[in-house]
Write a protein that binds this DNA or RNA. Structure first.
Lengths: 244, 244
DNA sequence: GACCGAGTATGCGTATACAATACCTCGCAT
DNA sequence: ATGCGAGGTATTGTATACGCATACTCGGTC
C-alpha cells in the first residue's frame, strides 16, 4: 500500500528531544496526521496500524501512540480488537445508514439556527472553503476535496453555536469519509460541486427552512450515490451462494 | 497508604489473576465504577481524581487508570488539565444549554422512529425501569433515581435502532446528570414521576408525534427546573460587580 | 498429500522507573 | 506584618522493560 506519510521522517536519530515541553502539541499533531491520513483515504479501511511502526515513524514511544490510537478508536476511526491490534475501521452498511440518518437529523435540524446566527465573516469563510473544495475537485485532488468537504460541513455546524452538536457533526463527517472510502464510487465524490454554494446562498438570505430542505436533499444525494454492497469478505455465506 | 495489592502481585509468580486475560473486563468494570459514581453524584463536580489514589483503590497500576481517565475525558465526564490532573467536570451554563438543546433535537427527533419500532418486550422493560425509578424516588434514593432516569432515556433512544444516535443520547444523558449535580435543586429531581409512564403510553399507541411533543415538554421542564446561576467562582467579573 | 501439533515469533497489555513541572510552604526582606 | 522568592514535595507525563497470548510456520504422522 501507499504509505508515504506526510511526516517526512523526523530523521533526528537522537530521540532525546522527546522532552516534555511540546509533548502535548506533538501528540496533537500526530493525532491529526493520522486522522487526516484516514479521512483523506491515504490510509484505507482495513489497513493495519502497528504500534511500533507508528511509534518509530513519528519518533515517539509506543505509550504515546497507544493514547492516540485509543482516542481514534473512541471516534470510531480505527477499530481496536483486543489482541489483533489497531486497524482503520471498515464501516458496515448498517453503520453507514446510521451515520447518514444521524447527519440528516442533526445537520438539517441545525440549519435554522445557523441561518439565524450566520455573519458576513462566516459567509466569506464558507465561500472560500467551497471555492477551494471546487478547485481541488477540478484539479483531481480527491483527498483534499474529501477533507475540505468534511471541514465545510463541520464548520457549518459550528456556526450554530452549539459546541456539543458541532462536535458530533464533526465526528459524523469523519466517519462519512470512511464510508465514502468503502462504498463510494471512484470519480463520483459525494458532494456535488455547486451544492455547497447554493446552501450558503440560502443561509445568507436567512432562509433556514430552505437551507434545511436543501441540506436534506444534499445528504440524500450523497447517500444515494453510495453503492452499498455487502462485501462480507471475511465470511462469505456459502449457503446463500450455493443455494444450500 | 495501603500497598498490599501491588506488592502481593509483584512477588506472586503464579499468573493467577490480573495478568492479561481479564484485563479488558477489569478495566471495563473500573470504568463503569467511576462513571457510575460520577453519574450518581457520589463524586461531585470539581472533585479531584488522583491517579495513584485510583490505582491503589482498584488495585491496578497507574497506566490502566490513565487509559480510563482519558476515556472519561473524551466523554466529558472528567476534565483533564495538562499538569493538574483529572477532576470531575463542572459543566458551564453554556454547556448545559448546549446539552439540553441537543437532547431536544435528537431525542424528540427519534421518537417517531421509536414509536414505529417499539415492541411489547420493549414496553414492559421500559415500564419496569420507570417503576424502579419511581420507587427509588419515593424511597429517597436520589443517586439511584438519577442513574435510572438517564438509563431510561438512553434505552429509549436505543429502540430507534440507530446505534450512533443512541450512543450520543447516552452521553448526553450522562452529562445531564452532571448538570443536575451542579444546577439542580435538591429534592426536585429533573424528571417528574409520571412523565416517563405517560411517554411509554404514547409510544405504545404508536403515536410518535405525541411522544415527540411530550418529550419536548419533558426536557423543557427539566431544563426549566435548573437554577442556572453563573457561579464563576474562578473569575468573578469585578467590573460587573462594582459597576466599572 | 493433508491435517494436526509443537515451536517460534510477533505484538499487545501492564508495571515500573525516571524526568519535568506545578503547587505549596517557609524564610527573608522591606 | 506583608509580599515576594526560592526550594521542596507531590503528581503527572513519558519511556522502557517484561510477560503473556495469539498467529504463523514447519515438521511429523496418518
Amino acid at each position: 500500500m501507499n504509505q508515504r506519510q506526510t511526516v517526512a521522517e523526523r530523521k533526528a536519530p537522537g530521540p532525546r528531544l522527546g522532552k516534555n515541553g511540546d509533548g502535548a502539541e506533538r501528540h496533537e499533531a500526530i493525532y491529526r496526521s493520522i486522522s487526516d491520513a484516514i479521512i483523506e483515504h491515504r490510509l484505507k479501511p482495513g489497513a493495519r496500524l502497528r504500534e511500533d511502526a507508528l511509534a518509530e515513524v513519528f519518533g515517539v514511544s509506543r505509550t504515546g501512540i497507544r493514547k492516540i490510537l485509543q482516542r481514534l478508536a473512541l471516534e470510531q476511526l480505527v477499530t481496536l480488537t483486543p489482541r489483533r491490534g489497531a486497524s482503520v475501521t471498515r464501516p458496515t452498511a448498517d453503520e453507514a445508514k446510521d451515520v447518514f440518518d444521524a447527519r440528516q437529523m442533526v445537520e438539517c435540524g441545525l440549519m435554522p439556527e445557523v441561518a439565524r446566527r450566520i455573519t458576513e465573516a462566516d459567509v466569506s469563510e464558507l465561500r472560500e472553503m467551497a471555492r477551494r473544495e471546487r478547485e481541488a475537485l477540478k484539479g483531481g485532488e480527491q483527498s483534499a476535496a474529501i477533507k475540505l468537504s468534511a471541514a465545510f460541513h463541520a464548520r457549518l455546524a459550528g456556526i450554530s453555536g452549539n459546541a456539543t452538536l458541532a462536535d458530533f457533526v464533526g465526528r459524523l463527517c469523519s466517519r462519512s469519509s470512511l464510508i465514502l472510502a468503502v462504498y463510494g464510487n471512484a470519480g463520483h465524490l459525494g458532494c456535488e460541486s455547486h451544492d455547497h454554494d447554493d446552501l450558503i446562498g440560502y443561509l445568507e438570505a436567512g432562509n433556514g427552512e430552505r437551507a434545511a430542505a436543501f441540506m436534506s436533499r444534499h445528504l440524500k444525494a450523497i447517500e444515494a450515490s453510495l453503492s452499498i454492497v455487502e462485501e462480507e469478505g471475511e465470511a462469505p455465506d456459502l449457503h446463500e451462494i450455493f443455494g444450500g
